[in-house]
Amino acid sequence: MMDLHGYGWMLWEGAVMTLVVAVLAMTLGCVLGLVGAVAKLSVRSGLRRAADLYTTVVRGVPELVLILLVYYGVPTVAQDLAETWGEPVVFDLDPFIAGVLTLGFIYGAFATEVFRGAFLSVPRGQIEAASSLGMRPGLAFRKILFPQMLRYALPGLGNVWLVLLKATALVSVIQLEDLMRKAQIAAGATREPFTFYFSASLLFLGLTVVSLYAIRRGERWAERGLR
């Protein structure tokens, strides 16, 4: 077994932080993804174009650049704006908030595509049947379209989650105390970088394995009554 020199707990705390960031970012991403998908399928061309712009830009720019842009760029913009209005302020973005917001924003674009595909997979007849029963569009969405869409979205969302989990390692670049950052600190203090980065990678692997298992369970649950 590897000797962690008493830094094991620190890595564990980091793993918890990584998980918290990932869960919050995934929640935000799902909300943005739903909004984006509804906008993409909307009849209004303005909404469609805005959602297209969102997914095109976010998926074409590296995550690292977006994280750095938000963390260092947003305070600068705010300060520059405040200065032109004659109210100089000092504004700093918390790395936790910046990390969660940016990751949620990025993976919202991926979730948009997943939800869009899932909405399109629900057979048209279902909506027609709902409206022929006299359901209003809002009710049909809530009772018919949305629950059925979730089943088609689940495998795609599982993939988004697996990629997002690994992308959280990037928030260590903006000094957030996640698993990666804790491993960095421990590696620096003990001069055993391999030991700690390898342990961190095993923790990430563990998170991935647990996620894979949960996703498989979730998919089986969503498909109950279909076989």
Binding site: K166, A169, Y197, F198, L205, T208
Partner: peptide, 21 residues
């Protein structure tokens, strides 16, 4: 499985800094 289950950043650090050990 290992390379798809761990972040690229960890792999980079493992190779560049980890080799020092």
């Amino acid at each position: 499985f290992y390379f798809r289950g761990t972040p690229l950043l960890v792999q980079l650090f493992l190779c560049y800094y980890g080799a020092g050990q």
